[in-house]
Design a protein around this nucleic acid. Structure first.
Lengths: 349, 349
DNA sequence: CCGTAGCATGTTGACGTGAACATGCGCCAG
DNA sequence: CTGGCGCATGTTCACGTCAACATGCTACGG
C-alpha cells in the first residue's frame, strides 16, 4: 500500500487543495471552512484563525467553478465589443474594468465571432456567454442583430452608446449636446456654416452627431452641405480632409472623432491651409493626445469613466435585484483649444 | 400538489434547462446529450439530430461552471495589465483576444488591485485567478512583485514585453533592434548625435530602448547626452520637447513612443523649429495615427498582433501539454516618413 | 432546576457535467 | 453456429461548494 498519499499533497496532482483538505488540517468541518472563506461572522475567532492558517499552509484557493455551480452566480461581467482598437471603446473598457473590480466582479471579454465561422462553432459559439451574470454591450446594437451572438434570454444586459433599443437598459453619452456645442461654437465665432466629417452610417453615435450638427445649422439658418463620411480612422479623415482643403469656401469643420480630426489637420497642412487662421477644426472624444495635436484641438469631451461606472452600476443592480435601472445619459462638454478661431474674412455681403 | 412543474419549464426559475431536461425531451440519456454537446463522433446521426432539436427547443446552454468543475479546465485565459490606456497594451490585448477566440478560449481581465486596498480583500483578492487555465502578464514583471497579486503556483504564465524573468515563458519585442534602427537612421542622415526622450525608468521596454540608443551612439562614436525621462504621455513629451526645442544644438530626437513624440512635435512647432528641416524626430510603436501626425512621423513599428498571437500560442501549449515553450522575440522595423531629414547644416568642422 | 434561546459547529445532499464502466445489438471469422 | 468485436447508448458516481437542516453547548429567566 505504498500509494497512500495525503490527499492534495505531493506532486503530480494538478488540482489544488480543496475545502476538505483545509478542513482536515484545521480539524473542523468543511462547512466551517466555507464560512470562513465567505467571511461569515458566526465563527469563533480562534477557529477562524486556525482555518486561515490551514488555508495559508496549503495554499488553498476556493474553486470558483464549484462555487458558481452551487450558487448559480459567477461574479463575472461579460463585455461585448466589436473592436478594442478604438480610443473610446478602450477608455470605456478601462472604466468598466475598474468599476467591476470595485464591486468584486471579474470581467470577461466576449468576442464577437467572425462572420467567417464554419459549422463547427455551432455548439461552441455561445458557450462563453454562459459564464457571466450579465453583459455590457459596447457596440452598435443593430450590428449585434446581424452577428450570430445569441444572448441567453433573461440575462441582464446594458447597452452603452447605442440607446433606442428598449429591450435593454442603456447608458448613453449625450452626443447631440456635444455636436450642438461644437457647431454653435464655430457658428458663434462667425463662420457662415460648418462642414461635417461624419462617422460610418451604421454607427449610432455617428448618426446622432450628424443629426445634431444638421439640426443646429438649420436652427441658425446656415447652409447644410452634405457630410463626408469616414470610418473613424485618421487615414479616412486625411482623405476626406483633402477634399475639404481644396474647397476655398470651407472655413469650419466639425469632425466626428479626434482621430479623423487628426487626419483632417494633416490634410489642411498639406494643402497649406492655416489652422485656425483659414480653417477651424473641432473634434469629438476628448482623447488626451488631442491637446498635443498641431494646433491643439478644440474638441468635445466625453466622460468615458462615468459611462463605464454607470453601466456597471446599472448592470449589477439588475443582476442582484432583478429589476432594471432607468436609462441614463452622460453629458459632454466643449474643450476649446487652439484649432478654432473666427474666419479670416467674415462673410459679409 | 399544484407546485409540480415540468422541470426547467415555466417562469420564475432563474436557472436554464440542464442536460437532463434535454435528455428527457429527446428521449436519450444525459450522457448522450453530453456527447453531442461536446461534438463526439460516436453518436448516431439521427439521435444527434433529435438531441440538437431538443437543445434548440429548450434553449439549452451548457453550464460552464459545472463543466469546469468536472473537467478542471475553464477554457479561459487571464490577462493582467496595469493600464488599458496605452496604445501598445490595447493593441496587444486586441491580438490576444482574437487568438484566444480562435482557440476557443475566453478572456478574463484580471485587475491589478489598487495598492489602497484594505484588509477586507484578504480572502477575495486572488479569487479571480482561480477561474483561469493560464495567465498572460502584460505589465512590467517587477511591478508585479510589488503588487499583491499572487499567482497560484503551477499556473502557466507567459510574460509579454518584460523578458529576463526566467521563472516564466516570455514573448518579447525586439526593442533593441528598433532603437538601433531609429538611431542609425538619424545618424545615417548626417546628424552628429541623437537626443533621446525615454519612457519611465521602471519600464523594462523603456530601459531596453534607452540602452540600445546609447550603445548605438557609442558604437558610432557620437556624443551621448543624458536622456530626458517622460511617462509615455503626449503631455510629458510636450514638456520635455520644450527643453529640447530651446537648445539650438538639437537636430535629431529619438522618442521612446509615438504618443510622447506627438508632444515633442507640438513643442517644436510652438518654438518655431521646423520638422524635419531643423529637427528630425523618430517615434516608437507604429500606431496608425502616427502617419497623420504633422509631419507624418518616422517611427519604429512593433508587431503587436504577432506578439499577442505568440503569447496565446505559448500559453495554451503549456496549458494543454504541460511543458514550456521557448521564449521568443518579435522583430521591429523602421517606418520612414516625413519627420526625418538630413540636418540643415551638416556638422563639418 | 428545567425550558429554551442563541450561538458555534457538524451532517447531508444537490448543483450540472463527463469519465469510466456497463449493456445490448449486429456482424463477421472460424 | 458461435465467440467475440465494434459501436451506440445507458448507468453510476465524483468534481468542490454551500444551503438547509441538525446537534450540542452555554446562559439565563422563571
Amino acid at each position: 500500500m505504498t500509494t497512500v498519499t495525503t490527499p492534495g499533497a505531493a506532486a503530480g496532482r494538478r488540482r489544488g487543495p480543496s475545502m476538505a483538505d483545509v478542513a482536515r488540517l484545521a480539524g473542523v468541518s468543511g462547512q466551517t471552512v466555507s464560512r470562513v472563506s465567505n467571511g461569515r461572522t458566526n465563527v469563533d475567532a480562534e477557529t477562524r484563525a486556525r482555518v486561515l492558517a490551514a488555508m495559508e499552509e496549503l495554499g488553498y484557493r476556493p474553486n470558483s467553478a464549484a462555487r458558481a455551480l452551487r450558487t448559480g452566480r459567477f461574479r463575472t461581467i461579460g463585455v461585448i465589443m466589436f473592436t478594442l482598437s478604438s480610443f473610446g471603446n478602450m477608455r470605456t473598457l478601462d472604466a468598466i474594468a475598474s468599476a467591476a473590480e470595485e464591486a468584486g466582479y471579474s470581467l470577461t471579454l466576449i468576442p464577437v465571432p467572425h462572420p467567417t465561422r464554419g459549422e463547427v462553432s455551432d455548439a461552441f459559439q455561445s458557450l462563453a456567454d454562459a459564464a457571466v451574470d450579465g453583459v455590457i454591450i459596447v457596440i452598435e446594437a443593430h450590428l449585434l442583430d446581424e452577428s450570430d451572438v445569441e444572448l441567453p434570454p433573461g440575462l441582464p444586459v446594458v447597452i452603452v452608446d447605442s440607446a433606442g433599443d428598449d429591450r435593454f437598459t442603456w447608458v448613453d453619452t449625450d452626443q447631440a449636446l456635444g455636436a450642438r456645442l461644437a457647431t454653435e461654437h464655430l457658428l458663434g465665432l462667425g463662420h457662415a456654416t460648418v462642414r461635417h466629417v461624419a462617422g460610418p452610417d451604421r454607427s449610432y453615435s455617428a448618426t446622432r452627431r450628424r443629426e445634431s450638427w444638421e439640426a443646429t445649422l438649420r436652427a441658425h439658418g446656415a447652409v447644410v452641405h452634405p457630410p463626408l463620411v469616414g470610418d473613424w480612422s485618421a487615414e479616412s479623415g486625411h482623405e476626406l480632409g483633402l477634399e475639404l482643403a481644396r474647397d476655398p469656401d470651407v472655413t469650419a469643420i466639425f469632425v466626428a472623432n479626434d482621430q479623423m480630426a487628426l487626419g483632417v489637420l494633416r490634410a489642411l497642412h498639406e494643402c497649406g491651409r492655416a489652422v485656425p487662421a483659414e480653417v477651424s477644426v473641432v473634434g469629438f472624444d476628448g482623447m488626451e493626445e488631442a491637446a498635443s495635436f498641431w494646433p491643439p484641438l478644440t474638441t468635445v469631451r466625453q466622460f468615458f469613466g462615468e459611462v463605464g461606472r454607470r453601466s456597471v452600476e446599472a448592470l449589477l443592480h439588475e443582476v442582484e435585484s432583478g429589476d432594471r435601472r432607468a436609462p441614463s445619459v452622460v453629458a459632454t462638454e466643449l474643450v476649446v483649444r487652439a484649432s478654432t478661431a473666427p474666419p479670416r474674412r467674415p462673410v459679409v455681403e
